[in-house]
């Protein structure tokens, strides 16, 4: 069952990823990305990271993708004519990189099964604590400082985005 779900989610993720890159129409690409996000969320659930799955859906699929769609439609983009001139180079390099990475991965000794602690006591602990609570505890104790910094980042990004997108910042007023 677990392997089946992994292969289902994995293959759809790969497929939609390729579609994102390959499709000409930007809106189509965005839709494919949306599907990919959903399946990533599913993958997270199989990995017992339910909180993250939910966050993924809310933030990525719900906010970021919508933002992309907004921009694509505001700017009224035309369809892409063709790929960049360096298509062959890009594809070639990609394949080589992939092969190298797989080669590297196969050399490393990685755990076959999830940590044994998970299956017995971990699962028991989880049913008590739940993924959300665990993540929350870690965030607010060990990783408190990064948490605050992350909020600062968001603040800065917000201010920056507002200023950048304001009319009259770059050059004269509406041409």
């Amino acid at each position: 069952m677990a392997t089946l779900s992994f292969f289902y989610f994995g293959s759809v993720i790969v497929l939609t990823a390729i579609l994102v890159v390959a499709l000409r129409n930007p809106v189509h690409s965005v839709i494919a990305l949306l599907v990919m996000f959903f399946h990533i969320a599913g993958l997270f659930v199989t990995l017992h990271a339910e909180f993250l799955a939910a966050v993924q859906l809310i933030v990525y699929a719900g906010a970021i993708l919508v933002l992309y769609l907004f921009v694509v439609m505001i700017l009224n983009l035309q369809q892409d004519d063709s790929y960049q001139r360096q298509v062959k180079w890009g594809l070639g390099l990609g394949l080589i990189a992939l092969a190298e990475v797989i080669a590297i991965i196969s050399k490393v000794a990685l755990p076959e099964e999830p940590a044994s602690g998970k299956t017995a006591a971990g699962e028991a602990a989880e049913t008590i604590a739940g993924n959300t609570e665990t993540v929350g505890k870690a965030l607010y104790t060990t990783y408190l400082f990064p948490f605050e910094v992350a909020s600062l980042i968001l603040l800065v990004a917000m201010i920056g985005a507002i200023i950048m997108a304001k009319k009259g910042i770059m050059g004269p007023e509406e041409k």
Partner: peptide, 10 residues
């Protein structure tokens, strides 16, 4: 950059 990364990995 990608080329460089590939070479280093290689």
């Amino acid at each position: 950059m990608a080329l460089g990364a590939v070479v280093i990995l290689g």
